[in-house]
Design a protein around this nucleic acid. Structure first.
Lengths: 118, 118
DNA sequence: ATTATATTTCGTCATTTATCGAAATGATGG
DNA sequence: CCATCATTTCGATAAATGACGAAATATAAT
C-alpha cells in the first residue's frame, strides 16, 4: 500500500466522532468491549467494528483477559505517524463536555456491574 | 457544531489521497485551480470540490488574481488544531514518489503554458 | 457586446461508511 | 457437555463521499 494511502487510513480512523470518543475514553484506563459499549450507547457490533478500525491503524491493541477482550492505547507503537498524531491529539478536546462525561463514566466503570456477573 | 465534530471535520479533510497531494503541492508554491488540476489529472470540478473542503477546514485560503483563483497554505491560521496538525504533517511523506513527482511538477508549473494563453 | 477562459455549482452515479440485528465464534462456569 | 456471556462476523440499509460532465457564474480579451 502506498504511503499516502497509509496516511489517509490513519486520518480516516480519526474521522469519526465515536472513534475519537473511544480514544479519549481509553486515556483513562483500558476497557473491555462491553464497558465501551455501555459508555457510548451503541450496538456491540458497531463498537467492535470501530475498535477493529482503530486497531488496524495501530492506535490501540487488544489483550484477552478471561472472557473479556481489553483494549489499550498503543502508546509505544512503532508506527511513527500514528505515535506523533496520537501524542498531539492527546492534548485535544480536554474541555469537551461529551469527552469529560465519557471519561467520568470510564473512571467509574465496573465490568462486573455491566456484564451480568457479580 | 460540537468540538468533537469540528475535529472529525479536520481529519476528514486529510482523509483523501488527492487532498493530501494538494497540500503537499502547495508547500512548493501557491497555485491556481488549473495548475493543480493539471498536476493531479482529475476533473476541474473534482479539484474545485477538494479545494473547498480544504478551505472549509482552514488548511488553505484563496486569493483572486486576474482571472485565476490562487490557493495558498494557511500557515498562519488562527485554528490551533489545524495549525498543529499542518505543522506535524508537513514533515510527513517527504520521500514518497508520488508526492515528489507532484512537487517537481509544481515547481515547474507555468499557468501560461497550461491555460491556453501565452 | 461577444467570445473565450477559469472556476464553481449542480445532478448523477458508484463506492464507502456507520449503523443495526442476527448468526457465528470463543471462552467460562456449572 | 451444556448453557451463558462476550465478542466478532455477516447481511441489510441509509447516508456520506468522490468522481464526472454539464450548466452556471465570473472575469478577461478582442
Amino acid at each position: 500500500m502506498n504511503e499516502i494511502v497509509e496516511v489517509t487510513q490513519i486520518f480516516k480512523a480519526l474521522s469519526d466522532k465515536n472513534r475519537l470518543r473511544i480514544l479519549k475514553i481509553l486515556e483513562i484506563k483500558p476497557l473491555c468491549v462491553c464497558e465501551i459499549t455501555d459508555i457510548l450507547g451503541l450496538a456491540t457490533s458497531t463498537v467492535s467494528k470501530h475498535l477493529s478500525i482503530l486497531k488496524a491503524a495501530h492506535f490501540i491493541f487488544e489483550q484477552k483477559e478471561c472472557k473479556w477482550v481489553n483494549y489499550y492505547l498503543n502508546q509505544s507503537t512503532q508506527m511513527p505517524y500514528v505515535r506523533e498524531i496520537a501524542e498531539l491529539t492527546r492534548n485535544w478536546l480536554k474541555n469537551n463536555e461529551i469527552v469529560l462525561e465519557d471519561q467520568r463514566k470510564a473512571a467509574l466503570s465496573d465490568r462486573m456491574k455491566i456484564c451480568h456477573k457479580q
